[in-house]
């Protein structure tokens, strides 16, 4: 697993004034892995993810994504990742097809390639009949699935998902995770943050952040075993409480 790390982070610090959002993060993510990045709100998940995507620079530490350095090679990184943010990232006033075309174009796919890709993508999502509807007319679940497909339209080696299933019904969440598995199966590394602890169980490995630090990292099974509980939810509560007890 470790020999082919596509994301490697060592001693990452990010400070905003006196506030330390990321405190000495160290971890690696291997190719084709589904890596769950968990934590309470404000634990520093999004900050770390933004650094990995090249949206902001770390205060210190070594960070390499797809073999490129986040300080100097953000352009290379951006070419090799997909990203789907917490907030809705497709243009609401463009149609399904137009959004696919736009992002395909931005990533420099040829016209031919874009045409192939959109046909393939629409048929996989069973959305052919909606290709000319505006995004704002689609239900949220459809939009999120589409946003994910668009985020990997250029077949990046890594895709970052920032709470992709927020506000989505359980059935659609299940479908969404099927799509994630499918992508991982094709060799795409998935880096996902989530609030839903049941989703954490779907990941190959997870890390739990508390107050800017990684409190635990490992496979879901290992973590449950080492804390002697039956669900990730309980692991999370133990960690979060423990930390509170320490600070109090």
């Amino acid at each position: 697993m470790k020999e082919e790390a596509v994301i490697s982070v060592s001693h990452l610090y990010k400070r905003f004034g006196h506030f330390t959002a990321n405190d000495d993060l160290c971890f690696e993510v291997g190719r084709g892995e589904i890596f769950g990045f968990l934590g309470a709100n404000g634990a520093g998940k999004t900050t770390a993810m933004r650094i990995l995507c090249g949206l902001s620079k770390p205060t210190s530490g070594d960070v390499k994504v797809a073999g490129f350095d986040v300080y100097t090679q953000t352009d290379h990184i951006k070419r090799n990742i997909g990203y789907m943010s917490q907030r809705f990232s497709l243009y609401e006033d463009l149609t399904v097809l137009e959004n696919i075309r736009l992002y395909g174009g931005i990533y420099g796919l040829s016209r031919q390639k874009i045409r192939e890709k959109s046909a393939q993508l629409l048929s996989r999502l069973e959305m052919e009949h909606m290709q000319n509807s505006l995004i704002k007319s689609l239900p949220l679940g459809w939009r999120q699935k589409l946003a994910f497909s668009v985020a990997i339209v250029h077949d990046p080696p890594i895709v970052f998902l920032d709470e992709p299933t927020g506000g989505v019904d359980p059935l659609t969440r299940r479908q969404f995770w099927n799509m994630i598995y499918e992508a991982a199966h094709r060799g795409i590394t998935i880096f996902v943050t989530t609030h839903y602890m049941d989703e954490a169980e779907y990941c190959d490995r997870i890390s739990i952040m508390v107050d800017g630090q990684i409190a635990a990292i490992g496979t879901p099974a290992d973590l449950k075993a080492s804390y002697g509980v039956s669900s990730i939810n309980e692991v999370f509560i133990i960690l979060a409480r423990g930390r509170q007890a320490v600070t109090e």
Partner: peptide, 11 residues
């Protein structure tokens, strides 16, 4: 709207 962030992670 948040779409700018999406554009920003593209190359």
């Amino acid at each position: 709207m948040g779409t700018l962030e999406q554009i920003n992670v593209t190359p």
